[in-house]
């Protein structure tokens, strides 16, 4: 399945509430879908809050391998991809800390 950010959020891609709309869809489909494609439509997000709430917090529930296997990114700008990697790295680190 594909989640198109533009279709779900329109131009509102800054706040945690905006990001939660994407995360809600991911979580509803997590077990049902082999992979979930997220299409950023080449829009610039530049928001830690949005990235964290949409995808980052998956790192608190799932392992890096589970996330990479399930989530596929499409039409994401290089800088947003870097931001997402940073955010996810932090959340996976928090997850490890909690588990230890």
């Amino acid at each position: 399945m594909t989640i198109k950010i533009k279709d779900v959020c329109g131009k509102n891609t800054v706040t945690r509430d905006d990001g939660k709309k994407i995360n809600d869809i991911i979580m509803r489909q997590w077990n049902a879908q082999h992979s979930i494609e997220i299409d950023f439509g080449n829009i610039v997000i530049a928001s830690v809050s949005f990235m964290d709430e949409a995808i980052g917090i998956l790192g608190l529930k799932f392992s890096k391998d589970e996330i990479v296997q399930k989530i596929k990114l499409k039409n994401i700008t290089d800088l947003d991809k870097k931001l997402l990697n940073d955010v996810l790295f932090l959340r996976l680190k928090h997850h490890k800390k909690r588990a230890a």
Partner: peptide
Amino acid sequence: FQMRLHINELLT
């Protein structure tokens, strides 16, 4: 990109 990110975070 970082500027945009900063203003977004501070206002959020």
